[in-house]
């Protein structure tokens, strides 16, 4: 019991992080192999599907390149800068790491909801949602600026008082957990798990373009946030994966950049500065109001 209250060193934490990183990848490869086998047996295997999966991995490579060159140092600068304003003095123990993971999931919930409901953030996150398939490889399909928006929400962990390294570890842990949600081979888990945790079933709903599934199940590790904040939907009808308007390509360059390209094109073609700016913050699907007529018809009394 005492180990839970003992100090956890930065070295221990980064060793653990490396260990988790490696095993997530090994397990994901294993599950993906099973998924491919299942596609084969069911006669659903196609070059298109393999191309889509390959593209998913290429977007990950591009995303990681951007993360390592830009965002990890930005994370460092923002986190250590914000730590100066820490609200509480929090020692790094396993207890505080566990509390931080739960809170990291709460900040993830809001960050994730933000990337779905704010146009300029959706531009990067819609890359993750643009595959018409659902398997382990989709977990690695990321957009170019996914990290940029995440920083805005993760930084609150540091402002609360968690050590920057702990906050980074916990934010990453919440992402790593979600890798395993991207599969169709797990149907439903026992109800107490489905009630509290985010599961493949809940996350299939999140990736659905069915009207009743849009903007649902934002949670990372826990689904309780969605139940609490009214964004939960249960998986009932079969899920149609992807965007409401499918991109219809597996070209990795188009997949990686289509969100920002569409945003830019939409901003350019939207009339009026106010509407152009509104386009950046309004949810996907928003259209500027039609120009109002100069005079209203007079009341006919």
């Amino acid at each position: 019991m005492e180990t839970f209250f003992a100090t956890v060193s930065a070295g221990t934490l980064s060793t653990l992080e490396g260990f988790i990183n490696d095993w997530v990848v090994y397990l994901a490869i294993g599950i993906f192999a099973i998924e491919l086998l299942k596609y084969l047996v069911r006669g659903k295997m196609s070059w298109r599907l393999l191309g889509d999966s390959g593209t998913n991995l290429l977007t990950q490579a591009a995303y990681l390149t951007i993360s390592y060159t830009v965002f990890y140092s930005l994370y460092g600068a923002v986190f250590y800068g914000a730590h100066e304003f820490a609200l509480f003095e929090i020692e790094t123990t396993w207890v505080s790491v566990i509390v931080c993971i739960i809170l990291a999931d709460l900040t993830y919930y809001w960050g994730h909801r933000f990337t779905h409901r704010v146009g300029m953030a959706w531009a990067t996150h819609e890359v993750h949602h643009s595959s018409p398939n659902f398997n382990m490889s989709v977990a690695y399909r990321f957009g170019p600026l996914d990290d940029a928006w995440a920083i805005l929400f993760d930084v609150w962990l540091v402002i609360i008082g968690f050590d920057p390294l702990v906050a980074f570890f916990c934010s990453l842990f919440v992402l790593q957990y979600q890798t395993f949600l991207h599969t169709e081979i797990v149907k439903k888990l026992p109800w107490p798990i489905e009630f509290v945790m985010n599961t493949p079933s809940h996350h299939r709903v999140h990736h659905g373009s069915n009207p009743e599934y849009l903007d649902r199940n934002y949670g990372g590790m826990f689904i309780v946030w969605d139940r609490l904040f009214g964004t939960f939907a249960e998986e009932r009808s079969p899920v149609v994966y992807g965007l409401t308007r499918q991109i219809g390509t597996v070209n990795p360059v188009i997949v990686f950049l289509h969100g920002h390209y569409d945003l830019l094109r939409n901003v350019v073609k939207t009339p009026g500065l106010g509407n152009k700016l509104r386009r950046l913050v309004m949810p996907p699907g928003w259209e500027p109001p039609l120009p109002s007529r100069a005079t209203h018809p007079a009341p006919s009394d």
């Binding site: 209250f5 509390v99 008082g161």
Partner: peptide, 28 residues
């Protein structure tokens, strides 16, 4: 569920501060 964004924000802030306070009360 809570559907008001303002109430959600207050609940979230309370959970964050409460969690931070809890974690800070744990001494090594």
């Amino acid at each position: 569920p809570i559907t008001s964004l303002a109430v959600s924000a207050v609940v979230t802030a309370a959970l964050m501060v409460g969690g931070g306070w809890l974690a800070s009360s744990v001494r090594t």
